[in-house]
């Protein structure tokens, strides 16, 4: 296990590059740093430009660009090779909660506590669509669906909405979890052939919804306290990882019909993220405590070929004295 040191203040977000060789981290010191995965060394020059805390990051599918959302209410697009800001989008009138790239890299979406979700053209930097719900609830996280047709938005009214961004209509609302205070995140996952949505909850549970029927498929308990972030493994294994305010990162594997949490690990800062390729470097430190499924070695679970599936991600629950996950301003 390796500790990446360099930021001067708490880290709010990390993201994996598509080739898994680079990790980007966004911090309260207003900088975004890039790290070699293999060596754990940072690239010498951080990405500077934001005027306030960097709160959300996403790599483009090719790995040549990075999008960042910040408390300075702007969304920046970065050219990663030159480590230069390509574009600054005057995105919102409140801190930007989440950003995401679509699977072909042509669109970027951003969301904010002002209740808006905006869709941007990567090439021209123009806003192509704004989505707003009548209730205007603060939006804390956005995710494009794996096929890029929909946007999943997490709002502080304990709802997760699936938007058709072309027509601007809400197609599904997923409910059952508690989310009123923290910037909780989740992800699309694939179990077998069906898609599911997984999200954390402030009551310490992880919830799984069926995408079509909106039914809660399962509630998984394991964390003490708020589950801040859940991310799924690319591919069809249904494996996921969660980070909670109790300072633990838990890895969940799909065991036949019963999902049981098997793995428990304690990491100092509780950052949960899925590696895209092959988790050998970061994930082999995680101990599997359950011997039931003997062939399910962690190495196998992490080896992923789903190069096209939008994965990546991470979020950090607690750091130092600053608790940025509270989106209340």
């Amino acid at each position: 296990m390796r500790t990446l040191e360099g930021h001067l203040a708490g880290i709010s977000t990390i993201a994996w590059s598509p080739d898994s060789n680079t990790i980007a981290s966004g911090s309260d010191d207003k900088a975004i740093r890039l790290w070699h995965r293999a060596t754990g060394k940072p690239y010498p020059v951080p990405l500077l430009g934001h005027h306030n805390y960097v709160y959300s990051l996403a790599f483009s599918p090719k790995g040549n660009m990075l999008v960042s959302g910040s408390y300075d209410e702007a969304v920046f697009l970065w050219d990663l090779r030159a480590r230069k800001q390509m574009r600054s989008l005057p995105a919102h009138s409140d801190p930007v909660g989440g950003v995401d790239f679509i699977r072909d890299g042509t669109l970027v979406c951003s969301c904010s506590t002002d209740g808006l979700i905006r869709v941007w053209d990567t090439a021209t930097g123009q806003c192509l669509r704004t989505i707003v719900h009548e209730d205007n609830a603060p939006v804390t996280t956005v995710r494009f669906s794996p096929n890029g047709r929909y946007i999943l938005a997490f709002t502080l009214d304990s709802c997760i909405r699936l938007w058709d961004y072309v027509s601007g209509t809400c197609k599904k609302t997923y409910q059952g979890h508690v989310n009123t205070k923290y910037s909780i995140g989740g992800a699309f996952g694939v179990g077998g052939t069906e898609g599911f949505i997984a999200s954390g909850s402030e009551d310490g549970e992880i919830l799984f919804w069926d995408v079509r029927s909106k039914e809660v498929l399962q509630r998984a308990r394991g964390h003490d306290g708020v589950v801040v972030w859940v991310d799924t493994c690319p591919g069809r294994s249904g494996t996921l990882v969660s980070g909670g305010l109790d300072g633990t990162v838990r890895i969940w594997v799909n065991v036949e019909d019963e999902d049981v949490d098997k793995v428990k690990t304690e990491q100092e800062n509780g950052v949960a993220a899925f590696d895209r390729d092959d988790g050998d470097v970061d994930m082999h430190e995680v101990k599997v405590e359950n011997g039931a499924s003997d062939d399910d070695t962690p190495g196998d679970e992490m080896s992923i070929d789903g190069r096209r599936t939008p994965e990546r991600e991470a979020e950090q629950p607690v750091n130092g004295g600053l608790n940025l996950d509270e989106m209340e301003e």
Binding site: N147, R149, K172, V190, V211, R212
Partner: peptide, 13 residues
């Protein structure tokens, strides 16, 4: 919520 009965597909490209 009742209006949201459309069948959607988030996976097929």
């Amino acid at each position: 919520l009742d209006l949201e009965d459309e069948d959607i597909d988030v996976l097929t490209i």
